[in-house]
Nucleic acid binder design. Structure first.
Lengths: 215, 215
DNA sequence: ACTTGTCCTGTCATGCCGTCAGCTTACCGA
DNA sequence: TCGGTAAGCTGACGGCATGACAGGACAAGT
């Protein structure tokens, strides 16, 4: 498990090579934000990076391979989302704040990386295991924390025994992800961000604790 | 607004032509279920339909054009989802049943059409207005009904005034759509359908009425 | 059989894909 | 300073999908 970056044909990449590789990744990332995934061509990425298509194929097997690379990076960042839930309280005013900050943090993360997350989502929905795994990695950080929170509340008798912590957490996280990826849609449809976030927080709070929050 | 089906070059299609066209749509539909959208090629669709690529281009400008066609059909079917909410009660046991049936109906609809809905979702998320419009058409049928339900309950004083009906309905519908499109994901992850549906119904009920259901 | 209009396909220019051999560049030890 | 070696890059090529066109096949009416 060395951090060795290798080319497709097995050579180890040096300083220059890594720079080129990174530049290709950056350009691909940018292209994903500005044009449909389906239309992203190797030749365009290469041109944008000021290199040739052949160079691209030295570092990545194909476009999807490069996308997976970017996705892994985002997944690493996403692991930090656990902080939004782990060890936070779910009672009283503090509980409401937990819900609010979770929503806030989640939506921001999604907006920062929306292009690549869209592609991950599609790949996962289409049944590609690699993308599915990455999606899990990102969402699990929050889902698992939320699942634990529910279990804890159940143990204390504050939440009904008959709800499934995993299903509840998964549903809520799926909701956050879906709303996040259609944020623009909501706004053009007439729902303002200012209305959206409190509502999501309310739903999260209701789902986890089963009670209305005390603001 | 005649129902006239036309070829790309303007001629009206006859019986035989319409049959060919429909066959191409069917084959495309099938291909979308079995392979990633990105990899669907005109030549494959044509081969599967027992015809030539040139024929495909007589009826559709490109793959996306044909996909939009299929999407419109699904949107028409989706309009019927209003029935799951319109005029249904949200109090007592009947309220719980409304929530359950909504979840059930929604998930079934999604599973029946998951391939095309995935593509619509992607197109919408990528900012394509045509796909966005279609997505709205499908989701609005439910969202608007739910929005009305919330407004009604607010008018009766049964729901807090400070929640935005549109944001709440939109969030819940987005959740249903997201969970639906990752149904397989949930199951391979260890959450059973039998757990998932009641949880979703619970969340819907909580979101709309603000109260736990009486089962 | 002939005509007319619909329907399909063979073919072609174009452009992207993915690979390879071979050239250039950087690093290093003598 | 000077090769030697490995990293890094690219031109060029066969292969395939695209999208356009003209012309052949076919059904229906006369």
């Amino acid at each position: 498990m060395t951090g060795q970056v290798r080319t497709v044909d097995g050579r180890v990449a040096g300083r220059r090579g890594q720079a080129t590789r990174q530049k290709l990744l950056d350009c691909l990332s940018e292209m994903l934000s500005s044009s449909p995934y389906r239309d992203v061509k190797v030749i365009d990425v290469a041109r944008k990076a000021g290199t040739s298509p052949a160079t691209f194929y030295q570092y990545f097997p194909d476009v999807e391979g490069a996308v997976l690379e970017i996705a892994e990076e985002v997944a690493k960042e996403g692991a930090g989302l656990t902080e939004l839930v782990a060890g936070r309280p779910w009672v009283g005013k503090a509980g409401w704040q937990t819900a609010e900050e979770l929503v806030e943090g989640f939506l921001d993360f999604w907006r920062r990386n929306d292009a690549i997350l869209r592609v991950i989502d599609l790949g996962a929905a289409e049944g590609d295991k690699r993308f599915y795994k990455i999606r899990m990695k990102i969402l699990n950080s929050v889902t698992n924390s939320l699942t634990d929170s529910v279990k804890e509340l159940q143990a204390k008798g504050r939440v009904d025994k008959d709800i499934s912590p995993a299903a509840m957490a998964g549903s809520l996280v799926a909701m956050l992800a879906a709303v996040a990826s259609h944020q623009k849609g909501f706004t053009t449809w007439g729902v303002k961000q200012a209305e959206l976030r409190p509502n999501l927080a309310l739903l999260v709070h209701l789902g986890i604790t089963g009670k209305k929050p005390t603001k």
